[in-house]
Structure formats: structure tokens, C-alpha cells
């Protein structure tokens, strides 16, 4: 589905066309729900938080200063609401050093994945992503799926820019490791 630019929907909502807000909700519902789900680990709670955030954003749309992208502002609201729901001050990002990364990035991994059909690739990446923790999944989704910049992710999560860079680099390596392991298990 092709979506319009965010400002198109925002201007229409602010000029009184309430139904235009459905465009923004449809455009972002998946990633907003995904952020809440990765933090809360519960579908009902995640849906409730996502819904509340969309209503909150609608009511305060006029206070959106457009200093950041609409999506970044929205994700930050969702992130903070989900964190508040868990009654934690901040998502506890587990230090990567605590992980024993048994599988090192294999240069040949991409080539073997290309050999798979699209359905197999989806199953493979789904399984690999399931092996990551919630915070790892969140960071990698924001970066690769949501196409947010490092600076945007830093704004959303409150982590420093350098911390986001290091974590993303390590999570990427870990994900390749998980993919390799799944493919090896499959071969056996």
C-alpha cells in the first residue's frame, strides 16, 4: 500500500478532516504495535498502549513542533508509554558482553540465504529474530524495518548515539550468527 507523506495527513487533520488520521494510524500501526510488544511481551498490553498512544498523539497533534520526523516523535511516545507500563525507568539493555556469542559472522552466510526462496527466507529471519532478546529486536526493527537513523533511535530510546551504534553493530553480527546456526541445523 502506498502512503502519502506524513505532513499531508497532519495538515488535513489539523484543518478539521478527522478521517485523515486513519491514514497515519494505518501507516504506523504495525511498527508502533511492534515497539510496544517488544517491550511489554504481551499482545493485549501492547495493543492497549499502542491505542492510547495514537489517541494521545491525535489530541496533541497541534503541539507537534516538526523539529523531528512525525514517526520519530510517535515512536518516542510509544517507547516511553510502554516503559512506563512496565514500571521500569528504562528498558534494561543487557550488556552484550554477557552473551557468549558462539556463532561468529560467516562471510558466506548472505550467499547461502540468496539461494533460498522468499518464503524460506521469511521463515529463516523470523526464527533468527525470535532468538534475539526484546531490546535487541527493538533496536534492529527501528533501524532496518523502520529505517530510523542512529540519531533518531538515540532520541527514541534515550541511549547515546555511540551506544546505539555499538549495539546495532553487535546485534547485526549476532543475527548473522543465529542465521548461520539455523541453516546448519537445517542442513544436518
Amino acid at each position: 500500500m502506498k502512503y502519502q507523506d506524513d505532513n499531508f495527513y497532519i495538515e488535513r487533520v489539523l484543518s478539521g478532516d478527522v478521517s485523515a488520521y486513519a491514514g497515519l494510524v494505518t501507516k504506523y500501526k504495525s511498527l508502533v504495535f511492534s515497539i510496544a510488544l517488544k517491550i511489554l511481551n504481551n499482545r493485549e498490553d501492547a495493543e492497549e498502549v499502542a491505542q492510547d498512544c495514537f489517541l494521545k498523539v491525535y489530541q496533541s497533534l497541534k503541539s507537534f513542533e516538526k523539529k523531528s520526523k512525525f514517526s520519530t516523535w510517535l515512536y518516542r511516545i510509544v517507547y516511553n508509554a510502554a516503559i512506563s507500563k512496565t514500571r521500569k525507568k528504562r528498558l534494561e539493555f543487557v550488556p552484550m558482553d554477557k552473551y557468549v556469542i558462539q556463532n561468529y559472522y560467516d562471510e558466506n552466510t548472505p550467499k547461502t540465504i540468496i539461494g533460498l526462496d522468499e518464503h524460506e527466507q521469511t521463515l529463516l529471519i523470523d526464527r533468527a529474530l525470535q532468538r534475539l532478546s526484546g531490546d535487541e529486536n527493538l533496536l534492529i526493527s527501528l533501524f532496518y524495518k523502520g529505517e530510523n537513523s542512529i540519531e533518531d533511535i538515540s532520541f527514541i530510546t534515550g541511549l547515546s548515539v555511540s551506544n546505539v551504534k555499538v549495539r546495532l553493530h553487535r546485534i547485526r553480527k549476532k543475527l548473522y550468527g543465529e542465521i548461520s546456526e539455523i541453516m546448519q541445523q537445517k542442513a544436518v
Binding site: 504495525s30 529471519i125 532496518y144
Partner: peptide, 30 residues
Amino acid sequence: IKDDFLGDLIKKSSPDNPSDIFVERIMDKV
């Protein structure tokens, strides 16, 4: 960090979708 191959692969993963009436429920309240 930028890895177009991994990016494309992650975009193929199954999305986390809320319930079918998610948008309708929000729009009713809106």
C-alpha cells in the same frame, strides 16, 4: 551497520500486526 542485504531480509520478516479492528477502534474514539 548499514547492511542492505540484512535490511531487505528483515523487511521480509512477518510484521507484528495488531488486531483487525485496531484502526476502527481508534477512529471511533477519535
